[in-house]
Design a protein around this nucleic acid. Structure first.
Lengths: 180, 180
DNA sequence: GTACAAATGCCACTGAGTGGCATTTCAGTT
DNA sequence: AACTGAAATGCCACTCAGTGGCATTTGTAC
């Protein structure tokens, strides 16, 4: 229904009439309208947590994220069409975009928690882990944007791994030469 | 009123009664309730655009951001109390947190636009600029979180510049030695 | 003082989300 | 099959954010 009429144009009353069920029952199963677009949010986050925890503890944050990137790249490539449809829906509504960022923020917290365990102990450990997690999530978001903008044609794993390399080794690139 | 009763607990009707004005007039001046907490959003973004545009075009993205960081660090330190109060307000409401992320997202777009002009021309230019902008905004957000968590005691400029150094040179740090 | 435009107020409305309570459904028991 | 307690569902009324339409006020130029 969202795909046909648009997210905002579809009221919860209409959805309930179509199921059919009562609005009251709807809100017992979904926290709000947005939850329809991001199903099983808790479960996905929990699984992400487990994935992070499963990586060997002596692996660096970057190795952790390379592992996770390859895993998710495969999964997202598998479900490409579904994800593209979801993204088309999200793109048309500021609320949904906001909710997507909120979810990313949850994931970023998990990344930071995973990183802090792998940091050298010391004063700046938590701070550094947090900054790195922020940078990682930033690159992931940018990468996903490009993949979506490209209709999922690009190789997601390559993009992700390249972005991680930039973070690990620094963003070095030839400076723009004036008049060269 | 938000500070006294909390954001969610203060209705627009109450605000209008206090001013006093009508609810209809309120919505002619503010797009929504959240706009009260983030005043002059357009103006701030426009000023940020100008700051980015004012930096010499041969400066690298990192130099751009060092300049901007120093500027904002000074300004934020100046208005420390006000910012802390605003942050306390934002922290209590998911809606406001979402709005803050939305604003950050706008700023990230501007950063990316500024970076892409300073990138070496070529295929991966826009993609790299976007990824870097994402990483930058990620570190900025993490940095601000730490500054807020620290009640604005830390030296914001040092934190910001340090984070930029990490991005430019790569996140290198001694690996955790097992049993060393 | 008149005329015109902009700002404001008023009213009714939609749509998301909640609280309270009655009713149904369903499982286990005898 | 009838009974019982709990969970699921439905129904109704409500709050609050936000919008549309229209009348009224305010201010300003002449």
């Amino acid at each position: 229904m969202f795909a046909e009429r648009g997210y905002a144009a579809t009221t919860i009353d209409e959805i309930c009439a179509a199921v059919p069920t009562s609005k009251r029952t709807f809100f017992r199963y979904f926290a709000d309208k947005e939850a329809l677009v991001f199903p099983n949010r808790r479960g996905r986050l929990a699984r992400f947590q487990e994935l992070l925890a499963a990586v060997r503890p002596d692996q660096s944050p970057f190795d952790v994220f390379r592992t996770v990137t390859s895993l998710f790249a495969a999964e997202y490539t598998e479900n490409r069409e579904q994800l593209l449809a979801q993204q088309r829906l999200i793109a048309q509504s500021p609320e949904l975009l906001a909710r997507e960022r909120e979810i990313d923020s949850d994931w970023e917290r998990e990344i930071a928690a995973s990183f802090v365990r792998r940091m050298p102990p010391g004063e700046s450990g938590p701070w550094l882990a947090d900054v790195l997690a922020g940078a990682v999530m930033g690159t992931v978001r940018a990468t996903m944007r490009h993949w979506y903008a490209d209709d999922g044609q690009a190789d997601l794993e390559s993009l992700g791994l390249e972005a991680i390399d930039y973070l690990e080794r620094g963003f070095v690139f030839s400076r723009q030469e004036p008049d060269a």
